[in-house]
């Protein structure tokens, strides 16, 4: 059974379609890298999944539950936004407890491995307002993984992280995939896409133009790096071509 499904999803702002005719199915244990130029619809796609933006047409399902009125489907979702902002006067520990309360997560039920791995344990007594942007990103990563989500949505997760922390985070993604979590990641780093993604979803002008495994694109184009292979592959496609596997 598919974990996340997009069926004919479109989103219109005024007369402008930000997303149009997206059909995609993501399986458990799959890492999908969502890429595309600025304004291509990546953020809108993710926001539709998270319920932050209401799709104008089509339907999205998460674990069989339709994204819409009932917020309970979000229990299955872990989200790490690109910009991590929290109430500045709370301590990190208070923020973690707040999320525990909201999630009704009893102590011991959470996955706290990233707290230690990212060094967040040393920040617990610190005010959020006293943390750097990178430290807040680490806290954000902890929150995304903490409630053992079956769907993880990470918006440019390594931006702002030091290389070691970025590595730790990517290892956590690999571990989550092994445990059957469906992971959607937006990224501009092609090495990350090639290394981590089971499939890449390439969006352009609000349309899903490619949904393929990176290896397939490399095979077709006979290239070794995705940053060279993808433009070559896209150049072969007719303007409105949509391909998926």
């Amino acid at each position: 059974m598919d974990r996340v499904t997009f069926e004919g999803v479109g989103k219109r702002y005024g007369k402008q379609w930000a997303l149009r005719g997206v059909n995609a199915f993501f399986a458990p244990g799959e890492v999908v890298m969502v890429i595309g130029p600025n304004g291509s619809g990546k953020t809108t796609l993710i926001k539709c999944l998270l319920g932050l933006v209401r799709a104008t047409e089509g339907a999205i399902h998460v674990n069989g539950m339709e994204v819409g009125a009932d917020p309970q489907y979000r229990k299955a979702i872990g989200y790490m936004p690109q910009l991590a902002e929290f109430p500045r006067e709370l301590t990190v520990d208070q923020l973690l407890r707040m999320m525990n309360d909201i999630r009704d997560a009893p102590s011991g039920s959470t996955d706290d491995r990233l707290i230690e791995a990212l060094g967040v344990d040393a920040l617990l007594d610190k005010r959020i307002g006293a943390l750097s942007g990178g430290m807040r990103q680490k806290v954000s990563a902890v929150l995304a993984f903490r409630y053992r989500p079956t769907v993880l949505v990470l918006d440019e997760p390594t931006a702002g992280l030091d290389p070691l922390s970025a590595r730790t985070l990517l290892d956590a993604v690999t571990e989550a995939r092994r445990n059957g979590t469906t992971v959607l990641i937006t990224s501009h780093i092609m090495e990350e896409v090639q290394q981590l993604g089971d499939r890449l979803a390439y969006l352009q002008d609000g349309r899903l133009r490619v949904l393929l495994a990176p290896e397939t694109i490399l095979d077709i184009t006979r290239e070794t790096s995705l940053s060279k292979a993808l433009p070559k592959y896209l150049a072969q496609l007719p303007p409105a071509h949509v391909e998926s596997v």
Partner: peptide, 11 residues
């Protein structure tokens, strides 16, 4: 930004 994060929780 935090309100958006809250809107992604089961609330």
């Amino acid at each position: 930004e935090f309100t958006v994060l809250l809107a992604v929780q089961p609330l």
